[in-house]
Design a protein around this nucleic acid. Structure first.
Lengths: 132, 132
DNA sequence: TGCAGTGTATTAAGACTATAAGACACCGAT
DNA sequence: ATCGGTGTCTTATAGTCTTAATACACTGCA
């Protein structure tokens, strides 16, 4: 069993709890801490650990399932799902990430970081996955 | 008057508008883009520009005044009360944008977008800010 | 003195977030 | 079949966020 818990809530951030959970699941999947086909902690388990309501966790899980990142296994729980790579045209996928990129550009401007500095910081976050 | 507007709202971020405004005012003050004793844009001016309610801007201003960052001048508006802090080292500024970049990388991974595709989508967003 | 501009108070309404307690269908194992 | 586990549905309640329309005291200026 994993010794350290995977999730944490930042109460002062202003971001809804279910959104924070979604972001962290996504990050863990990307980082490989939640491998493919791995079962996620149960809603009651996370709710107990974070002292929040199970329905809040359920809301995060449901939206992640809608996004195709995880899947529901009846009577079992939620499982990390293989990315259905390429179902959507590139243009649509780009549109989905655009709001995030706008935040990046705004924050970079705020901090006085150039485009190249941002790219330099962003590049190592992309994992090597052999040929694309 | 400055040609470029100082504030921007990200509707998809989940962060309340008044919190976004507070963060941006604070960043501008710290960076010196809003110097000491400078008058801030009026609540109605910002509300018009961002297509939001004046009371939402007022809420941000009131909380910033409570924090001592700005002060109210009756009949005039809000004035910057805090001195600009020195620009942080690049390393610290990079740290501040890192969580956002991790989110970008994770989302890109989920969508099956490569590093180059992300950069291609990000670059034009920097050009809108003028030369760096 | 008017007048336009400043932030703010008020009231009302709607959407969203989170909690609580209970119930359900489903699954695996005893 | 029973039991404990899974996610989810339902109902209700409370709080926050945002908008809208109106009004007020205050200030600088013509």
């Amino acid at each position: 069993m994993p010794s350290n818990f995977l999730f944490r809530i930042h109460p002062t951030s202003g971001v809804p709890i279910y959104r924070q959970l979604m972001d962290q699941v996504q990050a863990h999947v990307h980082a490989g801490r939640l491998p493919l086909d791995e079962m996620l902690p149960s809603v009651r388990q996370i709710a107990e650990e974070l002292q929040i309501n199970p329905m809040t966790v359920s809301k995060a899980y449901s939206l992640l399932e809608r996004d195709g990142l995880i899947e529901r296994v009846r009577g079992q729980g939620m499982r990390v799902k293989a990315a259905p790579k390429g179902l959507l045209p590139v243009k649509d996928r780009r549109e989905k990430i655009l709001p995030l990129l706008e935040q990046v550009a705004a924050k970079a401007f705020q901090l006085g970081l150039t485009r190249d500095q941002v790219i330099a910081a962003l590049t190592p976050l992309f994992k090597e996955r052999g040929a694309d």
